[in-house]
Simulated assay, not measured.
Amino acid sequence: MVGNASRGRLHVEVRRQGASTVVSPSGELDHHTAELLREPLEECAGRSGARIVVDCSRLDFCDSTGLNVLLAARMIAEAAGGSVHLAAMTPVVARVFEITGAGAVFTVHDTLDSALAE
């Protein structure tokens, strides 16, 4: 699956790379833009055994709505025997995961390459 969606402050690209689906949001992930990520992420997560890597390297901001989108996708993926990995978080996004403790429920990789190599 290859595709993309954008609405002003958030652009989302989806592509297959090896055994993984890479979802790359860029811009601001918040209440107003979360649906742009939710739809492709949940579609991918619902596939049996899906391995999703969210490349966070171009994500400038993530609020609680964005965090909930990622957590919901993780739950959907795990219920279908799959997984959601986070890669290359920017410091501002990593801080949200640190403050909330949500980083403990994801497999987090320093780089996209390391996430794909696993």
Results as ranks from 00 to 15, higher is better:
E28C: 14
R38N: 03
G46R: 02
A45G: 08
D55V: 00
E39H: 07
G49K: 00
T33E: 11
L41F: 03
S26T: 03
S48L: 12
L29T: 06
G49Q: 01
S48V: 10
L36K: 05
G46E: 00
E42D: 15
E28N: 14
D30C: 00
S64P: 11
C62G: 11
T33W: 13
D55Q: 02
G46K: 01
R58I: 09
S26H: 03
A34Q: 09
S24W: 10
L59I: 09
E42H: 13
S24I: 07
L41G: 03
V54A: 05
P40K: 01
V54E: 07
D63W: 04
E43P: 09
E39N: 06
L36D: 12
L29D: 09
L37T: 00
R47V: 06
E28M: 14
A34R: 06
E35W: 04
G46V: 01
R47H: 14
L29A: 08
T33V: 10
A50R: 01
L29P: 11
L29E: 09
H32M: 13
D63M: 01
A45H: 08
D30N: 01
E39C: 04
S26P: 08
S64K: 07
S24Y: 08
D55P: 05
F61D: 02
F61S: 04
D60P: 10
F61R: 01
R38S: 00
R58D: 14
D60S: 08
R38C: 02
V53R: 02
E28G: 12
C56P: 10
L37P: 04
E39Q: 08
E35I: 01
E42I: 08
R58N: 13
L41Q: 00
D60L: 06
R38W: 06
H31L: 15
L29I: 09
L41E: 02
R51S: 02
A50W: 04
G27S: 05
E35V: 02
G46T: 00
R51K: 05
F61Q: 02
E28Y: 15
G49L: 01
C62K: 09
R47L: 09
D55A: 00
V53K: 03
A50H: 01
